[in-house]
Nucleic acid binder design. Structure first.
Lengths: 245, 245
DNA sequence: GGATGTGAAGCGGTTCACAGCC
DNA sequence: GGCTGTGAACCGCTTCACATCC
């Protein structure tokens, strides 16, 4: 039975767990900081602490890339930087197009983290004629009509969507049709894309709502059990005992 | 032994899984869209599709809040909106302070998603004297010296850190000392906070790097196994079998 | 001795598949 | 008949604990 035997192929390539991939950039950043401080070697304990994870996780993560440490010693910072960079694909340049040059798009265009490590802003595009021609972070804003043109000539493979929500899906369809296979979406909508295209979402409002949930619990909201003894009025919560007692 | 018996208390309150909490805002947004279109009732299948998840997951998520659906029918949109809002703590107002009014802080201050649902910008702060006094998104920028003041008088419980990396930890320490227990961090650093304070991180550069990793695999990078036998050029996508087929 | 690398156990989350109810 | 709600199986990630190697 088990009709999804072939599911394993989903974790493609070398099979680095997605959770590990998501942490590699954090390790890389910590390593760069160590490098700047002139540190040549680092233990899993130290690096883990700098990255905000525990050392077992760090070691397991790194073990997926290969055996780049030395037992009894630690990891050579420079070597590890190179290996992680290579694994993440940062040893080559990636051309990025930013679509939507409102406040957010502008912030992105000026963000140092883009230019610094392997990412090149190959185009800023907007539908607003008033913005077209303006120079932002050293690049001239072009009209959205030229989207396909910019993607093709700039060999753009990553599109950053920073448009209003209502425009995002249309823009997404266009960049995908033009050959882009990775999208970073800042618009508060669920984008639908064909198989093979990766979308990552950054959503400020969602993050805030998650924080609000936890904050509410701390403060005695509907999910909070701390007050279950007494009987304040309001949205009469349905009580469920939790072992926390 | 097992010295982490009390770890269970970490998943506090009613015990809604963290993964579920992270999806509730997405459902909420989809429900609002349905509401605007005048839809009164929705099935798990429809709502799931609008939210970009599968229906089993959606049903299990909602079941953690209670039995708010009707078998054979679906969920009443308005009722579900209320229940999720209440669970997330959006039926009350949350005061937010934004620290750092560069491009990003400005984008955040002007972001509609803040004001719209339960979040009120109670303060914009910056260390740059040139910015202090300026009006942004209808609010006057105040000097960072007044941070504690603003937090106390505005009853701020959520701080958004949009400062340069080097300033973030110091700002974080100050907002925590002033009583803030939820932090949304946009600065590319790992913040350390005392027990009981929640930090969520939004990191553009990390998202891009994750995309680059996958992009590289598609294109035949070091993690790519597809070409190990032969060598066709081009972005010959790595095929992923999906049971739907 | 000391730190890495890794089987094995543990845990949370996802998916299946169907019982339960309208 | 149709759709929700949910136990059970499954899966991947985390953590432990220690064998392994410098």
């Amino acid at each position: 039975m088990t009709p999804r035997q072939n599911r394993n192929r989903d974790r493609a390539g070398r099979g680095i767990p997605e959770a590990t991939v998501a942490r590699l950039p954090v390790y890389l950043r910590a390593l760069h900081a160590l490098q700047e401080r002139g540190v040549a070697t680092v233990s899993s304990e130290e690096l883990a602490s700098a990255a905000g994870v525990n050392s077992a996780k760090l070691r397991k993560d790194l073990s997926h890339l290969g055996s780049y440490g030395t037992r009894g010693v630690g990891y050579e910072v420079e070597y590890l930087v190179y290996q992680i960079s290579r694994e993440l694909g940062l040893t080559q340049d990636w051309a990025v197009a930013i679509i939507g040059v409102g406040n957010l798009g502008r912030a992105l265009a000026g963000y140092g983290g883009f230019a610094s490590r392997g990412f090149r802003v190959a185009g800023l595009l907007d539908a607003d004629e008033a913005l077209v021609g303006q120079e932002i972070a050293g690049r001239t804003v072009r009209h959205i009509d030229r989207l396909e043109d910019v993607i093709a000539s700039g060999r753009v493979s990553i599109a950053v969507i920073a448009t209003p929500a209502h425009a995002a899906q249309k823009v997404c369809d266009r960049v995908v049709a033009a050959g882009v296979t990775s999208v970073l979406n800042f618009a508060p909508v669920v984008l639908s894309v064909p198989e093979g295209v990766d979308v990552r979402k950054v959503d400020l409002s969602i993050e805030l709502q998650i924080l609000a949930f936890h904050e509410q619990r701390k403060a005695g909201g509907p999910g909070d059990r701390r007050l279950s003894g007494e009987g304040p009025p309001g949205p009469a919560q349905y009580v469920e005992t939790v072992e926390a007692g």
